[in-house]
Amino acid sequence: MSDPNQDYFAHHTSQPFAWKERKKARGTWRALFESFAYLPPFNRMFGKDSPSYAESYWYCMGGLTFLSFLLLILSGLVLTLFGPTWWQGTYVGYVTKSIHYWTAQSFFFFLFLHIIRVWLTGAYRGKRWLNYAIGFVAFFLSLGENLFGLLARGDWESQFVSMHSDDMLFTIPGLRLISPENFTSALIIHVALIPFVLLILIGVHVTLVKLQGIARPL
C-alpha cells in the first residue's frame, strides 16, 4: 500500500450508474429514486462508505445551513418579484415574508451548530484552514446581509434601525457612503450584491469540502 490515504478517500470517487444492477439489488422504485445520486455532483451518495464518526447528525449542520440558504434564495426571489407593497399589504405576502424570516433564523441556527461542530472537532487544521476562513468570512457577510434585509423590510424596525445605525455604524469613513434609510439601495444590496458574493463564497466552501473530504478525527 504505497499511499496510506488511498483507502481513506476511496469513498470520494464516483460510481457507475449501473441501473440494472441497482434495480436488482434495491428494487425498481428505490433504484429510480436514488438515480440522481449517481450523476454529478451527487456521485456515490448511496451505497457509499464514510468514516463512522461522521455518521452523526452533527455532520448535517453545514448541509442544513446550505439548504436554508437555498430556501432563502427561493423565498427571497418571490418577495423580490412582488415587492414591498405585496409583503406589507397582503396576507400571502406577509406569510412569504415570514417564511423568509424563519428561514433566516434556521440559516443562522444551523450555521452556529455547524461552527460549534467545526470547533469541537478541530476541523480547521492543515490545508482546511483556507476553507474555514472562507466559511467565517461568509458568516460575517451573512450578518451584514441580515442588517440590509432588516432595512429593506420597510416596517417600523427598518425605519428606526436605519436612523439608529446611520448615527453609529454608518458614520465611519467608507461606510458613511452608504445611506441606510435609502431603502431602494438597501434592497439592492440585500437581494443582489451580498447574495452574489455569498453564493460565490458558499460555492467555493462546499466545493472545497467535497474536494478535501471529511476532516479527520482528533
Binding site: 406577509y94 406569510v95 415570514s98 423568509h100 424570516y101 424563519w102 416596517d155
Partner: peptide, 19 residues
C-alpha cells in the same frame, strides 16, 4: 426543516410593526 419554516411562517408570522 423546510416544512418547519413554512409552518412557522404561516402560524407564527414575523415582525411587522407599521412605520
Amino acid at each position: 426543516v423546510t416544512v418547519a419554516v413554512i409552518l412557522l411562517g404561516m402560524l407564527v408570522g414575523s415582525p411587522n410593526w407599521p412605520q
